[in-house]
């Protein structure tokens, strides 16, 4: 593995194959927890941690796991790691644990975790696998954070509400009231707001991509024609 390959892994996770807006995997937490920045980013980071550790720990044992057993074994390992994260949050970040509630155990069912283990960690060595899991998790975190910010500002007129739950009482004053005396815009907080916001994000990313392609094409140097990137299900 050389440096370029590591860079590719990062680029894939954060942009090219972003789980949130390109692969569209892991939509359940994406849509449910992204009602505020703090919730979204916290669950995103928990997911990234689980992905990095599960990919990193499954890669070295991949040759010992018989092919027909790999899904149950992978799921077992992921479930254990998620439960460990849940215990740790319950013990040391109680407020956040209560807020994220059922979505922490649900990380197990987030298909992006198993998808990366299956697609990457079961074919690569430990370090790149851990990096891949972490990069994909960060990509998801970024989408959760942006979507959370959009919904929170529109829905409640604040940013970073609930940050004291994540960082302790000293952070209580860090909440930004972006729009003072805001009456709230309920749909942004409710699940439909998540769908609409996600749609806008996907559209925005596709637009940026198209623009980059057009720029590349309009250059005088004849570039090979690239087929527009197809959205994946």
């Amino acid at each position: 593995m050389n440096l370029q390959e590591y860079k590719d892994i990062l680029h894939n996770g954060l942009w090219k194959q972003n789980p949130g807006i390109v692969q569209l995997l892991g939509l359940c937490p994406l849509l449910a927890v992204s009602s505020t920045v703090v919730n979204g980013v916290s669950l995103g980071l928990a997911t990234a941690l689980v992905m990095a550790v599960s990919s990193g720990s499954i890669a070295p044992i991949r040759s010992y796991v018989p092919n027909e057993l790999r899904i149950p074994v992978f799921i077992l390992i992921i479930a254990v790691l998620v439960t460990v994260v849940q215990y740790l949050m319950n013990a040391y970040m109680y407020g956040l644990y209560v807020v994220l509630g059922i979505f922490i155990p649900l990380i197990v069912t987030n298909c992006i975790v198993l998808a990366r283990v299956e697609a990457f960690a079961s074919k690569n060595s430990a370090l790149p696998s851990a990096l891949d899991g972490f990069a994909m998790g960060l990509g998801l975190t970024a989408v959760l954070g942006v979507l959370g910010a959009m919904r929170e500002v529109l829905g409640k007129g604040t940013l970073f509400s609930g940050i004291d739950l994540a960082l302790g009482d000293m952070a209580q004053g860090w909440v930004l009231h972006v729009i003072p005396d805001y009456k709230g815009f309920l749909i942004a907080i409710l699940p439909p707001g998540a769908f609409i916001g996600l749609g806008l994000l996907i559209a925005g990313r596709n637009w940026l991509n198209l623009r980059a392609e057009q720029k590349a094409r309009s250059k005088p140097v004849p570039a090979p024609i690239v087929s527009p990137e197809a959205a994946q299900g």
């Binding site: 390992i77 254990v80 215990y87």
Partner: peptide, 21 residues
Amino acid sequence: VNLVFFSVLATAVLASTYFMT
């Protein structure tokens, strides 16, 4: 045997985290 091995390992990790936290 393989499955049992992984289950035992997983249980050990879970149990120790439980007692630690």
